[in-house]
Design a protein around this nucleic acid. Structure first.
Lengths: 114, 114
DNA sequence: CATATAGTTAGCTGTATGGATCACTATCAG
DNA sequence: CTGATAGTGATCCATACAGCTAACTATATG
């Protein structure tokens, strides 16, 4: 049961770029062909395609080619993996505050919450 | 109304490295001096300090120096900013499904919004 | 068939990144 | 004062990254 986790490095790396985050955001509204995705950006197509490649490698998007058009869509698993990491962190802080709370409680001898 | 938002680029970039994520995770359990943070990693101190620098620049951690010891602690704002981005994305997907729902409803001939 | 469209492949380039070393400062312990 | 400890600062190096152009393939379309 190895719970094979999506590697976070490429996911966060992919998200560390405004162009790529914008693409993710746009795809959140639904699938789109590369050409349309590229339109808002002042960038040569090959350069833009690299971003698509990075996103796809990271498992954040998926794409299929039909005729000469490649359509991209969001693949929520990647995002979910990243969110999971944040959840873990929050769990850690939480347990820390619990401990602090326990400590204070122990020291104070009484739990007064107001 | 500029709502000066913490820039996401450096935050995600900082998180795109296992060493740095590990540091964040460790600091989630409470503050620690650099030396202690560096211990688990097989890396020269100056190299490790760069990671600390990246995290601090990104606003993910803060540090203060007392005597010759620099103590680092988590600064939750950075993490929060990143999480906020995920929240936005989820909101977008959600509205998309809403639209799909509306569309289907419209096609069905009735607008029912509970 | 001729041409436009949508990607793809293959380089090239400047800058950033992650690592190392060496030399240095500043503090604490005897 | 002497030495050890905890960071800093200043390079240096190899690799990765983000952008470019130019040339190519493959699919529509007139």
């Amino acid at each position: 049961m190895d719970h094979y986790q999506t590697p976070l490095d490429p996911i966060f790396h992919a998200l560390a770029d405004p162009t790529r985050r914008a693409v993710v955001q746009r795809l959140g509204r639904g699938p789109a062909p590369v050409k349309e995705l590229a339109a808002p950006f002042d960038m040569a197509l090959p350069s833009f395609m690299k971003h698509i490649g990075v996103l796809e490698e990271a498992g954040l998007i998926a794409s299929t080619k039909q005729g000469r058009v490649r359509t991209c869509r969001l693949s929520p698993d990647g995002l979910a993996a990243a969110e999971r990491w944040f959840d873990e962190q929050r769990a850690i802080w939480a347990s820390r505050y619990d401990n602090l709370d326990n400590l204070l409680t122990t020291l104070g001898g009484e739990t007064d919450e107001t």
